[in-house]
C-alpha cells in the first residue's frame, strides 16, 4: 500500500508543510526557522531558505489553487512565498508575539493568522483587512467553515467571524481548554479536543452539543473525512473514530484503530475516499481503510526516524508525506486500492 518514494532532510525538527496544489513540490518549515521545497516526485531539493523566521517556524498554510504558501513564526511575522522559486512575495509584520496559526480560506481569497489573543485577517496580497479584539486566552486553533467565515478556538470558546468584516457571527462556549479544532466540510459540526482529555462537539444548526470523554491523553489531532461522516480523533495511542451516520455518534461505540504504541500526533483523511493516515510519537505511520460505521482496518504502515509531526496527502491522494522530529520529510507512493 505504501511504497517508498523518497526521503529528504531539513535542518531541525520539521514543524509543518504541505503539497502544492498539483503536487509538484512538498514545502517544509523547521524549528530553526528554515523553509525548504522538495521536488514532489524525486525529493530533490528545489530551493532552501535558512533562518527566515527567527526562533523557528510555527505554521505553514498551502494556497488552495496557486503554487504559493504562507509561513508563520516566533518572530511575529507571516510570509507569503512562491513555492516555485522560494521568493517571499509578501512580508506581514504582525507584532511582538508568536504567530502560531495561519490558514487560507478555501477559495484562496483570505489569509488568516493568529498571534497571542488576536486573530488577523489579510487579503490574498497581504493587505490588512481587520483584526479581532482580545480572545479570553491565546488562540489555540483556527479553521475555515467556508470561504466567508473563520472559526477560532481558545480557552472556553469557539468564535465564528465574518471573513470580510470581522463581525462575530456565533459563539459556542464550553468551560475547558480547547487545544484543537476541526469543522465538518459543510461547516455544521464543530469538534474540539480539550486539555482535560475529551472531545467536545457542537452542531451549529441546532446548537446541540456533546462530549466524548475517556481519552487517556489530550486529543490534539482531529480530522473529518470529505463527507462529514467520520471524525477521527487522537488522544492516546489509539485512533478513535466517531461516525455521524444516523443519530450518531451519541450513544454509539467508536471505531478503535490500534497500532501505534505511543500517542497519536496527527491525522489526515485523503480526499474522496475513506482513507485515513495516522502518525504517532513513536515514528509510526499507518494508513487505514474505514467504513461509514467507523470500523476500519490497516492497509499500510511505515516508520520514520522521529516522532511524526504532520502528515499530508498529495491532493490527488496518490502520495503521502510525513514530517518528523528528526527533520525528516518522507514521501510514499500510494496505490489506488
Amino acid at each position: 500500500m505504501l511504497r517508498r518514494g523518497w526521503a529528504a532532510e531539513v535542518g531541525d525538527y520539521a514543524i509543518a508543510g504541505g503539497w502544492t496544489p498539483r503536487g509538484e513540490a512538498l514545502v517544509v518549515g523547521d524549528a530553526a526557522g528554515g523553509v525548504y521545497a522538495f521536488d514532489g516526485t524525486s525529493g530533490a531539493t528545489i530551493w532552501t531558505q535558512r533562518e527566515v523566521h527567527d526562533g523557528g517556524v510555527l505554521a505553514v498554510a498551502m494556497h488552495p489553487h496557486r503554487p504559493e504558501f504562507a509561513t508563520a513564526g516566533q518572530d511575529g511575522r507571516v510570509l507569503v512565498w512562491s513555492a516555485t522559486d522560494g521568493q517571499v512575495r509578501v512580508d506581514i509584520d504582525i507584532g511582538n508575539g508568536w504567530v502560531e496559526h495561519v490558514a487560507w480560506s478555501p477559495d484562496g481569497t483570505w489569509l488568516a493568522a493568529s498571534c497571542s489573543r488576536k486573530v488577523y485577517m489579510h487579503g490574498a496580497d497581504g493587505e490588512k483587512v481587520w483584526r479581532s479584539d482580545d480572545h479570553p486566552s491565546t488562540v489555540s486553533a483556527i479553521a475555515w467553515s467556508g470561504s466567508e467565515e473563520l472559526a477560532t478556538a481558545c480557552y472556553g470558546r469557539v468564535t465564528f467571524f465574518d471573513a470580510s468584516t470581522g463581525e462575530r457571527r456565533q459563539q459556542l462556549e464550553w468551560m475547558g481548554s480547547l487545544v484543537s479544532l476541526v469543522l465538518s466540510p459543510d461547516g455544521d459540526i464543530v469538534a474540539c479536543g480539550s486539555q482535560d482529555n475529551s472531545v467536545h462537539f457542537w452542531r451549529r444548526s441546532t446548537e446541540q452539543d456533546s462530549m466524548m470523554s475517556g481519552y487517556p491523553a489530550k486529543p490534539s489531532a482531529l480530522a473529518f473525512d470529505d463527507t462529514g461522516t467520520l471524525l477521527a480523533t487522537g488522544g492516546g495511542e489509539d485512533v478513535t473514530v466517531w461516525s455521524f451516520q444516523g443519530s450518531g455518534p451519541e450513544g454509539t461505540r467508536p471505531g478503535v484503530l490500534d497500532l501505534h504504541v505511543q500517542p497519536v500526533t496527527t491525522l489526515a483523511f485523503a480526499s474522496g475516499v475513506m482513507r485515513l493516515a495516522s502518525g504517532a510519537r513513536d515514528g509510526t505511520v499507518a494508513v487505514w481503510s474505514l467504513e461509514k460505521d467507523a470500523k476500519g482496518r490497516p492497509i499500510g504502515a511505515a516508520v520514520v526516524a522521529g516522532a511524526v509531526s504532520d502528515l499530508y496527502w498529495r491532493p490527488d491522494g496518490r502520495a503521502l508525506a510525513a514530517l518528523d522530529a528528526q527533520g525528516g520529510a518522507t514521501a510514499w507512493r500510494v496505490s489506488k486500492w
Binding site: G176, S194, Q195, S198, M211
Partner: peptide, 17 residues
C-alpha cells in the same frame, strides 16, 4: 493563562501558556 478543566476542580488547573 490559568486553564481549569471542565470538571471545575481547582486542583486540575494548569498553565496553558
Amino acid at each position: 493563562e490559568i486553564f481549569e478543566m471542565s470538571n471545575g476542580c481547582i486542583c486540575c488547573t494548569v498553565r496553558g501558556d
